[in-house]
Simulated scan of single mutants.
Amino acid sequence: MNIMVVSRIQVNSEIGHGAIKGRGTPVNPPNRFERAHGEAFDDGWDLPKEDATKPQTMLIRDATRSIITRNDSPDIAFGQSVNPYRGCEHGCIYCFARPSHAYLGFSAGLDFETKIVFKPEAPRLLEKELSRAGYKPAVIVLGSNTDPYQPVERTLGLTRAILEVLEKFGNPVGIVTKSAGVLRDADILARMASKRLARVFISVTTLDPTLARTLEPRAASPARRLSVIRELSAQGIPVGVMASPMIPGVNDAEMESIVEAAAKAGARSAHTTLVRLPHELAPLFVDWLEKHLPGRASHVLSLIRQSRGGKLNDPDFHSRFTGSGPYVEMLHQRFARAVKQFGLEGGNAVLDCSQFAVPRATPAAGQLSLF
């Protein structure tokens, strides 16, 4: 993949520094693919660190030649997705996608939320791929890796352009987001939903605004996300809630409250997953716990290990999203009971792939169609 750096920032690479307002983490753990890495140390010079304390977001152009990502994972319900962005400015400390930034040569830490890779050719590439003779219509998911409505979308508008292509082809779409930005595209989504071509899932991790500010510093507030569910539902757009991830000892006590609040706002379905801490994410999350919940850190980590076979992460299919053990079984029972109690579904709204059709080319000006 070819990328062009638009601007540069300097970030700190030592775990243990203080928090940065508006960022999920102030640190950049080493990229697991690099053999050599720098390590911060005190050289005796007490110099100001303005760049490190106020890092700016950097946009990086992605010159990829394909846009649809396909997977055959046995525990993922969709087969193809489109991600217009890599990295996410929301800065969620628990985000399982953080380690994917290593494939770009960046860190899963502060790099992930400040070095945002965008795909300006995404709409054109999508139209090209959907037009191929061998394309088989299937739901395309936006937001499977990073949020398609993160702040930069307000400027670039790539997600909206992608939706315009999907609507033109009649290809169904599923969206996962924790941003109120999705309301901007409610016009397209409502039209598609009327034909059973669209559904939206709003991620609600906590109802506590104070906790949300540290867990997900640049995402919409919990109250705003519930409002988004209400507004989408009022426009006839099937909307569900992702009460995810559940972090034992941090937000799992809110599970029933999240499901109830989402149901009252108009959600039709609910899903949940257990927190995942792959690769570099584990030390980042531990650092966050020690900074923001020092009195609970050891207990939280103990519960996660109990739910992950003694480790902080389980990468195996079928158990990586759900976990295992008595504590997890109790969470599953609670969730199932809440979904039933508040009248929600555990499945997804069925979308219609039969309406897909490649649009006929528009005749050039002054040239009549043969048909």
Rank of each mutant, 00 (worst) to 15 (best):
71 N>Q: 07
134 G>C: 13
160 R>W: 14
351 L>C: 03
348 N>A: 14
322 T>Y: 00
133 A>T: 13
325 G>C: 00
348 N>H: 14
213 R>I: 11
99 P>M: 01
10 Q>D: 14
359 P>F: 03
203 S>H: 09
271 H>M: 11
15 I>W: 04
255 M>K: 02
347 G>L: 08
195 K>Q: 15
188 I>F: 11
42 D>W: 06
284 L>N: 06
209 P>N: 09
170 G>Q: 03
154 R>V: 11
144 S>W: 04
198 A>R: 07
80 Q>I: 04
39 E>Q: 07
112 F>H: 08
355 Q>N: 06
312 L>F: 00
340 K>N: 04
276 R>Q: 04
267 A>Y: 12
95 C>V: 09
133 A>W: 12
48 P>H: 07
141 V>N: 11
56 Q>H: 14
283 P>C: 05
72 D>N: 13
1 M>K: 13
122 A>K: 13
151 P>S: 05
325 G>R: 00
161 A>C: 12
193 A>D: 15
195 K>E: 11
171 N>Q: 15
112 F>Y: 12
319 S>Y: 00
243 A>E: 04
96 F>Q: 04
208 D>A: 10
28 N>D: 06
273 T>D: 06
266 G>L: 04
35 R>L: 04
76 I>A: 07
97 A>E: 00
93 I>D: 00
170 G>T: 05
306 Q>K: 01
153 E>M: 05
316 D>H: 03
179 S>L: 08
216 E>M: 04
87 G>P: 03
13 S>A: 12
164 E>A: 06
348 N>Q: 15
352 D>V: 08
148 P>T: 13
300 V>E: 00
239 V>Q: 02
269 S>Y: 07
359 P>R: 01
158 L>P: 06
250 V>W: 00
5 V>W: 13
345 E>A: 10
239 V>T: 04
37 H>L: 01
215 L>T: 10
138 A>H: 15
213 R>A: 15
180 A>M: 15
171 N>T: 14
266 G>I: 10
158 L>R: 10
276 R>H: 04
294 P>N: 15
140 I>H: 05
324 S>D: 00
123 P>Y: 13
184 R>H: 14
232 L>V: 03
102 A>E: 08
197 L>I: 04
185 D>L: 08
229 I>A: 01
324 S>C: 01
196 R>W: 07
223 A>Y: 06
317 F>Q: 03
109 G>Q: 03
207 L>D: 01
340 K>H: 05
229 I>G: 03
195 K>P: 11
148 P>C: 13
229 I>M: 03
53 T>C: 09
313 N>E: 00
356 F>H: 08
311 K>D: 00
351 L>K: 02
15 I>Q: 06
74 P>I: 05
93 I>F: 02
145 N>G: 13
222 P>H: 03
27 V>F: 07
183 L>P: 11
270 A>H: 05
144 S>T: 11
310 G>K: 01
140 I>Y: 10
244 S>W: 01
80 Q>N: 05
